[in-house]
Amino acid sequence: MTFSTEDMARRAAREIPAGSIVNLGIGLPTQVADYLPEGHAWLHSENGLLGMGPFPYEGDEDPNLINAGKQTVTVLPGGSTFDSATSFAMIRGGHVDMAILGAMQVSCGGDLANWAVPNGKVMGIGGAMDLASGARRVIAMMQHTTKKGEFKLVQRCDYPLTATRVVSLVITELGVFEPTGHGFRVIELAPGITREKAEAATGAPLT
């Protein structure tokens, strides 16, 4: 059995120390917020919000209170809003403790590729490069292989890079892995996933 996306989000939430500032990337990482105990961490959204709360109740939506994915959100007591330059000063200046980001490829050296597919439609960079290079710790949350079964945990990324040597932990449906430079150290495997099965799905040695 593999980890469900809920399992992955719950596992990622366990990596977040109490009282830290965390930025959750668009997509899968957004779900991590559902597994954080109330008041555990402060969520940062790069469009200019710290202390982001859950989605609003129906009827309370404000089109000018949104997250970086342009979804309507709320702001918690103690939260603040600010301009984009200040928001990225927080990120670039090392004030954001952790970023949990989606990934297309992660190399065993910790390189991250998550903004473009070679010869694919260019969606843009957004805040990905600033977050990847600026956050104190970067965790990648991703499917272990592509839909076609191609490796996404690789020796060397061949997709356009977001940042080099930044990813410290990778959470996939098969388990939790740490890029070591030479391979991926197995931190844990999903229930019923053997080392051999994980090895066969990984494009670099498991150590």
Partner: peptide
Amino acid sequence: ENAFEYKTTRKR
């Protein structure tokens, strides 16, 4: 107009 892009809510 203040258009919504992605209106996301939770149930009361």
